[in-house]
């Protein structure tokens, strides 16, 4: 089988140099962003890289888009080496980054798209047709000749997505495509990615996200990444199956829970807790929900911890992440 993206033993380390009084060297800190990562993305699939902030997602997408060079290892996009054949890689990918600023705000949507069409060597006639087609597809035709600075965040994101599609690339690299968008518009973008780009357009989509719902809804396969390492790869169902044998008890308490005591309960496999909006949010992973619930509530009661809410949850991708890392997806934020 040929792969759209192939990553072999990729390693990337960043060195942060510290300065004293902004000038004098005062040591350095090394951060391993990618630690010998291996991945294969099949043609026509939506592949998601799910992990918390700082996990190495953006570094990987920037290496695949030739914006960062790896220290070691190999990466191929549509069969081309991202280092030795960077030009060929660039012509086969469309990159969409999460920020709103990757287009020119002082230009109109049409001017932006015509400019980028020129960079991708489309002739004038083809460029005009393609720009009209994309403006129509994105629902921007009526505002096409307004300056981008007058657009809403959602409209700006549509122009950025249209820019990534201008040369009709076979592979799309989407870095946190719905970051900062309001929930309704984020949903609209997700449906567009899945239905228009993947199902109708047949494009291979490699996306990074730290929203588990997004990964679950969009992706055919998901790689969980944490601290530069790929923890698990599989379909959302396969991954969730790994924790389905467990029950997930979700509790909110006013006082800090006695985590060690909870973990010592025989049915309990793991306890994760964190403070959120003045309340403690606890997730207890257990083999037997009924017995575990009874024991957990007993322990909390005897420790004087007041329980505000209690429920048994369906397992999610976050539970898979917690199972393998002991941390929540949002812990890295």
């Amino acid at each position: 089988m040929s792969f759209s993206i192939e990553v072999i033993n990729l390693y990337k380390k960043f060195v942060e140099r510290k300065k004293r009084f902004y000038i004098f060297p005062a040591g350095k800190r090394e951060v391993v962003a990618l630690n010998h990562v291996n991945l294969r993305v099949r043609r026509g699939e939506i592949f998601g890289l799910l992990g918390p902030n700082g996990a190495g997602k953006t570094t990987l997408i920037k290496i695949l888009s030739t914006l960062i060079l790896p220290d070691e290892g190999e990466a191929y996009v549509d069969g081309y080496d991202v280092v030795r054949e960077a030009g060929k890689v660039r012509s086969r990918i469309g990159l969409m980054t999460g920020g709103e600023r990757s287009i020119y705000w002082k230009l109109t949507a049409r001017e932006n798209l015509l400019f980028f069409a020129k960079l991708y060597k489309l002739n004038r006639k083809t460029a005009k047709e393609r720009v009209d087609e994309l403006l129509e597809l994105m629902g921007l035709k009526d505002r096409a000749d307004d300056k981008v600075e007058d657009y809403s965040s959602g409209m700006k994101m549509k122009v950025i997505l249209a820019k990534a599609l201008i040369h009709d690339p076979p592979i799309l690299l989407l870095d946190e495509p719905t970051l900062g968008l309001d929930p309704n518009f984020a949903r609209e973008i997700r449906v567009f990615i899945k239905e228009e780009l993947n199902e109708k357009g047949g494009k291979t989509i490699f996306l990074t996200t730290h929203y588990m719902e997004e990964a679950d809804m969009l992706c055919d396969r998901i790689a969980l990444i944490d601290r530069g390492e790929i923890i698990r790869v599989g379909t959302p169902e396969e991954l969730k199956k790994e924790v389905r044998m467990q029950s997930v008890l979700a509790l909110q308490t006013l006082e800090e829970p006695p985590t060690k005591e909870l973990e010592s309960i025989s049915y309990v496999e793991r306890v994760v807790s964190g403070l959120s909006n003045g309340k403690y949010e606890i997730k207890v992973y257990a083999k037997n929900s009924v017995e575990a619930a009874r024991e957990v509530l007993n322990v909390l009661n005897s420790a004087g911890v007041r329980v505000i809410s209690f429920r048994v949850e369906e397992s999610t991708l976050e539970d898979v992440f917690i199972k393998y890392t002991g941390r929540r997806l949002r812990d890295g934020e």
Binding site: T66, F116, L119
Partner: peptide
């Protein structure tokens, strides 16, 4: 500063 440099560098020019 504008955030557009990467858009230029990622194009095949």
């Amino acid at each position: 500063m504008s955030g557009t440099l990467e858009s230029l560098l990622v194009s095949p020019i």
